[in-house]
Design a protein around this nucleic acid. Structure first.
Length: 365
DNA sequence: AAGTAATGCAACCGCATACAT
DNA sequence: TATGTATGCGGTTGCATTACT
């Protein structure tokens, strides 16, 4: 193509692009050029926005040893799916991950090391928080064959939701790990992948933290048929019990997701699952079998998440397991990744009472 | 201090896919 | 259904900076 500028972006160009996105949203990239605002291709504009200008990016922060380990594991699991891998690292772009991997690969090649191997920070000369994994998760991860479903990718994705990992990595940081600015929410791709959509949900239950404004549903189940409207989310009971009996469902009308800038496939046709019954004694997953999902009415795009699921009828973890809506044994789900705060419980924090109160098939675990 | 190697990363390209017409 | 366009992704390149000798 002729007439398009290439190479590094100037501050002026960035300002124009930011201004454009502020007004028009992060799409219709070609219009920026066609309307004479920038002599850049739409692709170039999009790339600049995604990789450099998008809010919420981690700038100038090297990958920590924990992040490195997770990149290695993820790459080993799913290959060079950088965009997918990047979802596990909020604030990182696929380009970041790709560049990191490439650099690391070269470095290890020079040292004649397997890029799939990981050495801790001490061994590599890097320093940072060690990756600390819940014992159950370690076991599940390292023994995927133990899972009834032997798809390693699935098993892994099921456990390691991006928000959880983010919290995980930032355990020693003063920065709240779950903070995801609305302007940095993943985009809705299409109605066929409804829960790639982002939704705000209730804060982490009244004072667990005042700085966890938004979380979102992870891409957990990649092998799930695209027609399935809900993906597995896993609350853990003690979290729900800890500070409030308030169900987490509530979508504050004053805090809708930032969807006006989204693609044409607005998330307004989506509904979100919610925790309808928090009674303090049973862990009720916010999963609704496909067959139970009612027809979803359309809503104006300005009210994308006003459609809420009606309460589900007390499905048990067992049932969900049996119907393959969750793919780990219920106990593992219960212990694994919290829908509310996205953090697995510290194993030692699980009191006998909590464990006893769990209604799952303990005997099978 | 200068030259070289290593590193980090921005940005390009080609291709695939989704979507509109 | 076919075609064109927009968008997204992975591979690659090239430049600036940093580390090393």
């Amino acid at each position: 193509m002729e007439g398009f500028k290439k190479g590094p972006w100037s501050k002026e160009e960035d300002a124009i692009l930011l201004d454009w996105v502020a007004v028009n949203g992060p799409h219709n990239w070609s219009s920026i050029q066609s309307k004479g605002r920038l002599m850049r291709t739409g692709k170039s504009c999009r790339l600049r926005w995604v990789n450099k200008l998008r809010p919420g990016l981690k700038k100038g922060r090297k990958f920590s040893p924990a992040e490195e380990e997770m990149v290695v594991k993820l790459q080993g699991e799913i290959g060079n799916k950088w965009a997918h891998i990047a979802q596990f690292f909020p604030g990182r772009t696929d380009n970041d991950v790709k560049n990191f991997w490439s650099t690391r690969k070269k470095r290890l090649a020079r040292n004649k090391r397997d890029p799939l191997s990981f050495k801790s920070g001490n061994e590599t000369g890097m320093h940072g928080p060690e990756l600390v994994v819940h014992p159950d998760l370690v076991h599940i991860y390292e023994n995927p064959k133990d899972d009834q479903h032997q798809d390693k990718t699935f098993t892994f994705n099921h456990i390691m939701s991006p928000p959880y990992m983010n919290k995980f990595f930032d355990a020693t940081s003063a920065t709240p790990a779950l903070t995801v600015p609305t302007s940095n929410l993943p985009q809705t791709k299409s109605p066929s992948t409804p829960f790639d959509n982002v939704m705000p949900h209730e804060q982490c239950l009244n004072g667990a933290s005042g700085t966890l404004p938004i979380s979102y549903l992870p891409n957990i189940i990649e092998t799930e048929p695209s027609s399935a409207p809900f993906r597995c989310v896993v609350p853990h009971q003690q979290c729900l019990n800890a500070t409030s009996a308030t169900p987490i469902l509530a979508l504050p009308a004053s805090n809708p997701p930032n969807t006006k800038s989204g693609p044409t496939a607005a998330p307004s046709n989506n509904v979100m699952p919610y925790q309808h019954s928090v009674n303090g004694t049973s862990a009720i997953p916010a999963i609704v079998p496909t067959a139970d999902v009612p027809s979803i009415k359309s809503a104006p795009s300005s009210e994308p998440f006003n459609n809420l699921m009606p309460p589900i009828e007390s499905p048990s973890w067992d049932r969900l397991f049996e119907t393959e809506l969750i793919f780990l044994e219920p106990k593992c789900c219960f212990l694994g990744c919290c829908r509310v705060c996205r953090v697995p419980p510290a194993f030692d924090d699980l009191t006998d009472d909590v464990l006893d109160s769990f209604d799952g098939p303990e005997s099978s675990h």
